[in-house]
Each structure stands twice: as structure tokens, then as C-alpha cells.
């Protein structure tokens, strides 16, 4: 049975300038122990999608009526959309779902020691007493490769280096033994050598805890090294989904192809870098039809400008939302 089912997630924000559609009709599911890479540029709605799973978006967010998010826990399915207040939300927020943020310095409270923050959340989400929570926290810090964990436990975020802080963040997120971990660009602020360490650590932990992970990143290289499957988002819509090998080797959507082409390749230094032309449009001016048509180099006519492309299955579990695929499969 799947761990998470998201169906028709549509999310709009009410702002002074009008209603902004941040996520448009997104559906996906995740199995336990599976890592899904969620890829896209800034403004593509990937973080908002992930936060919706915990209803963490600000008060001006409007979810559509047919949005359905179901989390299958041991105790039975939880309908996230029906959770109304903070107390009900505890089941998912920090309980079944944990989140690792991009900037570890901003996510820890600066004036409270790391240990105290770790203990606090355990007291909220489990039946542990202070002593047990403390022991578990120190054990978790040790597990993520922080040396001298009992000293670090009493230190503050500013005393730790960037890589260490991100490890502490991971330790904290995992100590409640969540079923689903959302990692929002967890390695973007880190140096490459540290990034490699953190990726390894996360891979070890998935196998051990059998969690599902949603890994948000804009770096396809990181996805290739961590994820089992990939979902590519553009301007609030999911444009391609599939197993990681399939999507990276045989991308069908022109946007995915563009992202891969834009990546600097090390085996051919002379190859020119090919940007995806143009800029991501403002969410206030969402293009009609296929949202990508303003930047697409493979546009096939008016259909792209008027009609929203439907999913086309291109291989097993691999699908893309592009009119081009339909033409291709029809021929």
C-alpha cells in the first residue's frame, strides 16, 4: 500500500495583486522507503506542494475542493485536508511527517541550545520523559556522524559549521521516527564535499528507517544520485513523472530536456552551455494552454497556446504532459 496519495492538489494564494495559482492539479503517490525527487526552478511550486502535505502554507492559501491528500499510517489513513486546527495537525506535523529546510542556520532558534530544541519536539510528539528524550537525541546526533555528540547537544546553532548544522537538522527530523521526510533543498547551501556526505547519510537512513522521502532540489545531478523516481514541476504544474533512470536518459518533456541540457557536463568541456531561453513567467501572468509554451523551443502550433496538455504514458510508470508526446505516440 502506498504511504502517501496526493490527488488533484490545487492551491491558490489570495494576494493584494490578485489570486495567484501556485500549484495546479498535481497528483502523485509515494511508497514507503521510496525517494522521490521533486525538481523545478524557483517559482515552480515545489516547496508549496511539499508544505501542503502538512498544511503549512500561510493563511491566505486556498485549497480547491477536490484536493485530496491521504497519508496511510499504521493506525489507519489520515485525510490531511480535513485536519482543522493545530492540535489535530500534530499527527502529521512533526509526527508522521518531518521536514528539513534549506538553510539550517535559519531553522534552529539561535538562543536555544540544539539539545533543548531536540528534546522539546520529542516531548511534544512522544510519551518519552526528559531523560529518555535526551538520551535519544544524543544517540541520533551520534548516528548522523556528529563527533562528541554529548558536547554538541549543549551547543548553539552558531557554534556549528554549515555541514554539522544540517546533520543536526537531519538528526532532529528523524528522532521522531517520521513515516515521511520532506527535504527542501537540504544540500543547496553546502559545499560539494559536504553535500556528498549528507546525501550518503540520507540514503543510509532511508534504508534503515524505511521512510518515504520527498527530496526537493533544482539540481538534477543530486536527484540522479539519490532518488528512485522524479517529478518535474514548472509554474505549478507537474510536467513529467517517472523512474529516475527513465526520466534522465529519455526525457520527454521539452522542459526536462532543457534542464538536462543546461547542466554543465564534465566529460565535454568544449560543449556550449544551452540555457532554457527566457525567464519563468510571473505567476500573475500564467500563460494559457501549456504553461511552458512561452519558453518552449519545440512548440507545435496553436494547440500549445490554447489547450492544457494531458498526461501521456511514454513507458512503464513514465508519463509526460506535452502535446508533442501525443503526436509522437499517434504517429
Amino acid at each position: 500500500m502506498s504511504l502517501l496519495d496526493v490527488e488533484n492538489l490545487t492551491l491558490q494564494f489570495r494576494t493584494d495583486e490578485g489570486i495567484i495559482t501556485a500549484v495546479d492539479n498535481v497528483s502523485f503517490s509515494l511508497e514507503p522507503g521510496e525517494v522521490m525527487g521533486l525538481v523545478g526552478e524557483s517559482g515552480s511550486g515545489k516547496s508549496v506542494t511539499a508544505k501542503s502535505l502538512m498544511k503549512l502554507n500561510p493563511g491566505n492559501a486556498i485549497y480547491s475542493d477536490d484536493t485530496k491528500i491521504t497519508l496511510h499510517l499504521d493506525s489507519g489513513p489520515v485525510d490531511v485536508m480535513s485536519l482543522r486546527n493545530a492540535r489535530e495537525m500534530e499527527v502529521v506535523r512533526g509526527g508522521a511527517i518531518s521536514m528539513i529546510f534549506q538553510e539550517p542556520m535559519a531553522s534552529f532558534a539561535p538562543a536555544i541550545s540544539i539539545g533543548k530544541q531536540m528534546v522539546e519536539q520529542l516531548l511534544v510528539h512522544s510519551d518519552m520523559n526528559k531523560k529518555q528524550a535526551r538520551d535519544l537525541s544524543i544517540e541520533m546526533l551520534d548516528r548522523v556522524g556528529i563527533s562528541d555528540a554529548s558536547t554538541r547537544f549543549n551547543q548553539y546553532a552558531f557554534e556549528l559549521s554549515g555541514g554539522m548544522r544540517q546533520r543536526a537538522m537531519i538528526a532532529m527530523a528523524l528522532s521522531t521516527k517520521p513515516k515521511l521526510l520532506i527535504a527542501d533543498e537540504p544540500t543547496t547551501a553546502l559545499d560539494v564535499t559536504i553535500q556528498a556526505q549528507v546525501i550518503d547519510l540520507m540514503k543510509d537512513l532511508v534504508t534503515e528507517f524505511n521512510m518515504g522521502i520527498i527530496f526537493i532540489t533544482h539540481d538534477l545531478g543530486v536527484v540522479a544520485q539519490t532518488a528512485d523516481k522524479v517529478a518535474v514541476m514548472y509554474l505549478g504544474r507537474m510536467v513529467e513523472q517517472g523512474p529516475v533512470r527513465e526520466v534522465i536518459r529519455h526525457p520527454h518533456h521539452p522542459y526536462t530536456q532543457g534542464l538536462i541540457a543546461a547542466l554543465p557536463k564534465l566529460d565535454d568541456l568544449e560543449a556550449p552551455l544551452v540555457p532554457v531561453p527566457g525567464d519563468i513567467p510571473s505567476p500573475l501572468e500564467r500563460p494559457p494552454g501549456c504553461v511552458f509554451h512561452t519558453r518552449c523551443s519545440k512548440i507545435i502550433g496553436d494547440i500549445c497556446k490554447t489547450e492544457i496538455p494531458q498526461w501521456v504514458q511514454t513507458a512503464e510508470n513514465h508519463r509526460a504532459a506535452c502535446h508533442l508526446c501525443k503526436v509522437g505516440s499517434g504517429a
Binding site: 526552478e41 524557483s42 540555457p275
Partner: peptide, 11 residues
């Protein structure tokens, strides 16, 4: 910058 834009600025 995003990857797709990065290539553009470098060029």
C-alpha cells in the same frame, strides 16, 4: 541562480 538561467548568464 536556477540551472536553466545559470547557463544563460554564463554565456
Amino acid at each position: 541562480l536556477d540551472l536553466s538561467i545559470q547557463a544563460d548568464v554564463l554565456n
